[in-house]
């Protein structure tokens, strides 16, 4: 008898070939149109911010792996995605220390101390963002950030202008075709709406993000903004202005869809996306911040476990025991 050593394991013996590396690589690909546009628009400083953000985010994960004596996990590109999303949410003129502190909070506090990939209750990039926003609020004044730039369009951050001047004063300044084509002042990757939408649709088609969240998020934004606008058109901006400015589109396709902090069942996904959209408009129109995307999505991350308890009936059980 020969003694050929065979591979023995349990079924299933096939896999569809997907992996975390593939998934994250695709998210990075999908972010590229908006990022490249931002780099062209805002020049070398934008490239510096994005590059530093990705590299330091990966470095923090690497350092945490070493300190906690765990296997190296940066190969799955998860912190590269965090770094990329974080980087493109910053103004192009952010100083280096700002980026480094931000990615430290995002990767170490937002992700690694919870146990790494899959264990984070909040979107790590948003944790980093929120801490920076609360600590150095002035850094996110996009009008001040680009004071030395000469753009060929209205160099006013739409949401800040809306907040402090009211919708009547800025009427006609921000036509939506300009906003979607990136003719607006904002963070590196948040201005080119068309690029974000294309990237988002690509990810939806590839099955890497869940369309239910994106769709209900956009509906939430449009519906709430429409109601406010109808109630008082002089104060509150229209739905399209809200949709195509600030972090809204990034939120719809890249922030709210972060895997481990968003629900996976059908009804919860719709609720989660919808209420995130609603919260954003409430924060913009009633709250103190000109763009509430970061905090609104973090708030919904908090509710996610409760929402996700709404489950479909399981085969062979009489009652839904959720």
């Amino acid at each position: 008898m020969t003694s050929t050593k065979l591979t023995v394991s349990h079924a299933p013996f096939w896999h569809d070939g997907d992996s975390l590396f593939q998934m994250n690589l695709n998210i990075i690909l999908a972010l590229l149109p908006a990022t490249i546009f931002g780099i062209i628009q805002f020049g070398a400083p934008a490239l510096g911010v994005v590059a530093l953000s990705i590299s330091t985010a990966m470095f923090w994960e690497f350092a945490m792996n070493l300190i906690s004596k765990k296997a190296l996990t940066i190969g799955d590109l998860d912190s590269a995605v965090i770094g990329m999303i974080f980087g493109i949410m910053l103004p192009a003129t952010s100083p280096w220390w700002f980026v480094v502190v931000g990615t430290f909070v995002a990767v170490v506090i937002g992700k690694m101390i919870f146990g790494g990939i899959g264990a984070n209750p909040f979107n790590p990039a948003l944790i980093g963002m929120a801490v920076l926003m609360l600590s150095w609020k002035v850094m996110f004044d996009f009008d001040a950030a680009y004071v030395n730039y000469d753009f060929g369009f209205t160099a006013l951050a739409p949401l800040a202008a809306l907040k402090f001047k009211g919708a009547a004063a800025i009427a006609g300044l921000f036509p939506w075709e300009n906003l979607i084509m990136g003719k607006q002042v904002g963070a590196i990757g948040s201005t080119f709406g068309l690029g974000i939408i294309l990237g988002g649709i690509y990810l939806i088609l590839r099955g890497y993000i869940r369309w239910e969240i994106c769709a209900s998020f956009i509906i939430g934004i449009l519906l709430t903004a429409f109601c406010f606008h109808q109630a008082n058109p002089a104060t509150y901006g229209g739905p399209l202005l809200h949709l195509f400015s600030g972090y809204t589109l990034l939120g719809a396709f890249f922030l709210s869809t972060e895997n481990s902090s968003s629900p996976v069942n059908k009804i919860p996904m719709f609720l989660y996306g919808f209420f995130a959209g609603v919260m954003i408009i409430l924060m913009r129109n009633i709250g103190a911040y000109s763009d509430g995307t970061v905090l609104a999505i973090l708030l919904l991350n908090l509710v996610n476990p409760l929402l996700d308890a709404i489950r479909p009936k399981v085969l062979g059980k009489g009652a839904n025991n959720a």
Binding site: D18, L20, G118
Partner: peptide, 8 residues
């Protein structure tokens, strides 16, 4: 790896 909650 742990579950990343992708929902597939």
């Amino acid at each position: 790896y742990p579950c990343v909650n992708c929902g597939k």
